[in-house]
């Protein structure tokens, strides 16, 4: 990886309005915040843009605010700030743990929550040098007409590998997006498509400006956790990453939300997770949960680890976290 940085013009807007205007005027323009994903991809020739719009100087994107309605995290808040924030660690632990699991400390000091949500999907046939990809005839995600992972398929199977999204999903997060017509809010799951080459439902001139988390309710606390499995202990993407949240009702029933990253082209909330009742027996419940998750994830040959291993991994991590949270919430 020593291809030179391609030439581009950098603009540095000071407000969200200026950034939207710049994107609108430059349809091929790309946003850069921390740059930890984009710069590496540009040097591999995966991103070809003559215009970068640096949003790191926009003050309002760096604001974080705990209010009555919940927590608002500006899209430019860094992962380092998130995992060091004691309130996030206490009230939304999965989000702090997911931030802490991203890359290495130097990356987390630069990388932003908005950038992590938009992080490019990954595949062993895509995250390679230009000559490697060219000699392989490129691929569906970039300049090619075949997916080397699923050659008979018609869509890109690259895996979404951001760590923050599942943690935000299980906390019921909304995303605030700014565009030429003003701002809009969507549930985070609606931000993504199950398509590796078209994974974001954002218009070319839209910017994620903040994430909104519901207020922590001490009367009905939600406990949560995130864990990822990766090849090495730092600077690595998840082979599978799982976030789980758990809320106990007055009757003792526990409602679990489980979201997964790293296995599909979009992060997603697991469907049909039944609530846990102590009478069900924890081991039986977790065995059913394992079957459910194995049925819903669809890892492909996008990493050096086998797809089946990642399927089992997702199930094992979900079981481990669910067990921990159910035991924690019952003792609390």
């Amino acid at each position: 990886m020593s291809e030179p940085m391609p030439p581009f013009e950098l603009s540095r807007p000071q407000t969200v309005g200026q950034a939207v205007k710049a994107l609108n005027a430059l349809p091929e323009g790309r946003l850069i915040a921390g740059g930890t994903d984009l710069i590496a991809n540009m040097r591999r020739g995966l991103v070809e843009s003559k215009n970068l719009i640096d949003i790191s100087a926009i003050a309002e994107l760096h604001e974080m605010e705990f209010g009555k309605d919940g927590l608002r995290i500006g899209a430019g808040v860094t992962l380092r700030e998130i995992c060091n924030d004691m309130r996030i660690r206490a009230d939304y632990p999965a989000i702090a743990q997911a931030s802490d699991g991203v890359a290495g400390p130097g990356h987390r000091a630069a990388a932003t929550i908005g950038g992590n949500l938009c992080q490019d999907t990954r595949c062993i046939y895509y995250n390679q040098s230009h000559w490697w990809r060219k000699s392989n005839g490129f691929c569906l995600k970039f300049k090619g007409d075949i997916c080397h992972v699923a050659p008979t398929g018609r869509r890109c199977r690259a895996a979404f590998s951001g760590d923050l999204a599942p943690a935000l999903i299980v906390h019921g997060t909304n995303i605030q997006i700014a565009g030429p017509g003003g701002t809009r809010r969507v549930a985070i799951a609606e931000l993504y498509n199950e398509d590796g080459s078209d994974y974001l439902r954002l218009a070319p001139d839209e910017i994620i400006i903040a994430v909104h988390l519901p207020a922590f309710n001490p009367m009905a606390p939600v406990v949560s956790a995130y864990e990822k499995v990766r090849m090495r202990g730092a600077i690595d993407y998840p082979l599978a990453g799982v976030a789980v949240s758990c809320r106990r009702s007055n009757t003792g029933e526990a409602e679990l939300q489980i979201a997964v990253t790293g296995t599909n082209s979009a992060p997603f909330l697991l469907k049909n997770v039944s609530p846990f009742n102590a009478g069900d027996g924890l081991d039986n419940y977790l065995a059913d949960l394992s079957k459910l998750i194995q049925k819903q994830v669809s890892p492909q040959r996008t990493t050096t680890a086998a797809a089946h291993y990642r399927r089992l991994t997702a199930a094992a991590v979900a079981q481990r976290l669910a067990r921990k949270l159910l035991l924690e919430s019952s003792s609390g």
């Binding site: 990886m1 020593s2 950098l10 850069i32 740059g35 930890t36 710069i39 590496a40 040097r43 591999r44 640096d54 380092r80 890359a103 290495g104 400390p105 130097g106 990356h107 000091a109 630069a110 600077i235």
Partner: peptide
């Protein structure tokens, strides 16, 4: 590595360690 993967280029920016090969 020249791509943010090895840390050999780490410098401090405002006192915080950052890889300088993925910083403009």
């Amino acid at each position: 590595c020249d791509g943010g993967e090895c840390g050999a280029c780490t410098v401090l920016i405002d006192g915080v360690a950052r890889p300088s090969c993925i910083t403009l």
